[in-house]
Design a protein around this nucleic acid. Structure first.
Lengths: 338, 338
DNA sequence: ACAGATTGATTAAACGTTTCATCAAGCTAG
DNA sequence: CTAGCTTGATGAAACGTTTAATCAATCTGT
């Protein structure tokens, strides 16, 4: 219970030098002789000293802490949508390599904002912001390095990283078309303007167009991108007559859908082909393993951190918009239509 | 880019009082008249002031930050094992209600320790520690409020929360026995002494014993508790002749197993019944939906935070060992043997 | 009307760093 | 021999709070 922290002062006394010197060897700043360095280092070891981040933070007005915000998510989404886990862990891994730590900021946007100021957060990564919203405005007001993930914001001054959603939506649909499907339903999250789901939806329409297949709005089913969402969409999809395939704009919905279909005795891909989007780790273990438009979630996380860091250090980053590639991963949830 | 933070000093000047007064209204400490209070509050609003956590942390030697450590996990486990994710989000939710924040501490234990000191962490929650290890010793050395989850540590002075693993293992196995199965394999994580898997394994043996079924060591398959682990165990399980059911000590392994079995054309529950443990959110959407021994993951997280907080505030908590109940959730991955 | 209690506010030290300005001492060059 | 430079180290202020000690002024009861 000895609660006295060992401080830089103790080290100084123990090494017989001033605290300034200790600080200098700690940070490699200033001039300090080799002898003194080893002297101080010995003292540090002996006392098992480690500098107080709190004090450093205060002095530097930095925290080496970043936060991930998912503004438009209700409580529980982070927990229910594996895509977010994968993304957040990717961000965490990226941050770690720069000695940054990630603060888990839950769903409530209201709270998040005060955090950022109070905790001196060095940066925030925002997933799925929507243009013109109050939340977005407040984030920008914070005047803190920010990177937006998975949203299409028109302000060119903003740092954004996203994947080729439209192209991916197109590819996924084309894959089904290539397998002989003509009547393809779309299972999508809310079609918010400038959101990823909309982009993938546009790709879907484009593929249809190019193949000369007429677009039928009643084949578009909106459901939350979650297991539950996908699962409960199964009912609506089941009653779509003539449909032989579904393109889902998220893996989690696709997997939920397959589960829901299973409940109804509809087998994938025998009765219905399914293609997802994201390439969640999970998808490989779905039954059947999910054919999907793969995005590099890890790369997305790393890229976000890189952009954030560039802003933090230079006040700007070389490129403001990073667009990553996607690619088809063919597994077994979509079959050729005879 | 105006980088000057507005500080308590600015508020004081703006309200025409001393900074001590501002601090007092901020914290509700000391004596301050109603008039002054509203005066100060107006100033706070006007300047959009929020106090610097960094400064507070320094003064208070507190950080309102806790960390979750998973000591024996290699990199990637957090990301691959949904159980951890659910637990961490539960902890986060619990922490939030006490204005605590959760630092995501990745897999490397070496790093974690320095974090705790440097960042003045107020507490740590350790998942799956092993007795007698270097890591455990170092954690205890930190002399910081700590709660252990999912480990059976003999030191009665430690705060631990766990579920009735042995009982659950017994119940899960009994469920299969009740369905007429006699030849039941066990798919388990590493049987580390005093680990949860071992406890569940003991329950398994107990159920066998009580039913007068001989224990056959070759029916016990060890595999990492992950999708991959379960999936690749499928091969080994498939060649176990005469086995009609598998009890898996984790849902994630069970789901991986079902996936692996599917690859081999072995249908669950037609050819093989499977029971899991944990009740992951995912399990409801597996095909078939997973019958499992359910633990209250959210409750576990909340309880851990509660115990941590009790230590932080009183230096001790009413009870040192919290053992939560588990219950069978019968879904469709295990069938009656005719 | 006065000692003492109460109320409301202030001053200043402390928390553990970093960093700028200063300084002593040993060199070099003219 | 001294002016000026270099090297290595130090003193002290600052970062933005909290809080104990102090103080002035008003309020009691007698």
């Amino acid at each position: 219970m000895s609660d006295m922290r060992v401080t830089i002062k103790d080290v100084a006394r123990c090494a017989g030098v001033s605290i300034a010197t200790v600080s200098n060897v700690l940070n490699g700043t200033g001039r300090v002789s080799a002898d003194t360095i080893s002297l101080v280092q010995r003292a540090i070891k002996a006392l098992d000293f480690s500098p107080s981040q709190a004090a450093r933070n205060l002095k530097a007005k930095k925290s080496r802490l970043i936060a991930v915000i998912v503004p438009f998510a209700g409580r529980g989404v982070l927990h229910e949508n594996p895509f977010y886990w994968e993304l957040v862990t990717a961000i965490e891994a990226g941050a770690r390599s720069y000695q940054l730590h990630v603060l888990l900021v839950g769903a409530e946007p209201e709270e998040s904002f005060s955090f950022v100021k109070e905790r001196h957060l060095d940066g925030v990564i925002v997933i799925g912001a929507s243009e013109g919203t109050e939340a977005l405005a407040r984030i920008l007001q914070l005047n803190v390095p920010t990177v937006f993930l998975d949203s299409y914001l028109s302000d060119a001054a903003l740092y954004q990283v996203l994947v080729d959603d439209e192209w991916g939506g197109c590819e996924g649909t084309k894959h089904l078309i290539g397998l002989g499907h003509r009547s393809i339903a779309l299972l999508t999250g809310e079609l918010r303007p400038r959101g990823v789901h909309e982009a993938r939806y546009i790709g879907y329409r484009k593929a249809l167009d190019e193949a000369g297949i007429g677009y039928r709005p009643n084949l578009v089913i909106e459901a939350p991108p979650s297991m539950e969402g996908g699962s409960s969409a199964a009912a609506r999809i089941a009653e779509l007559i003539g449909v032989t395939a579904v393109f889902a704009t998220s893996d989690v919905a696709a997997i939920g859908l397959m589960s829901g279909l299973g409940e109804r005795g509809i087998a994938v891909p025998r009765d219905l082909s399914v293609v997802g989007f994201d390439d969640l780790h999970l998808g490989r273990f779905a039954s059947p393993p999910l054919t999907t438009v793969a995005q590099d979630i890890g790369g997305k996380g790393r890229e976000a951190v890189r952009l954030l860091l560039a802003q933090m250090e230079n006040g700007r980053a070389p490129s403001r918009l990073e667009r990553l590639k996607v690619e088809m991963k063919v597994r077994r949830s979509a079959r050729r239509l005879e």
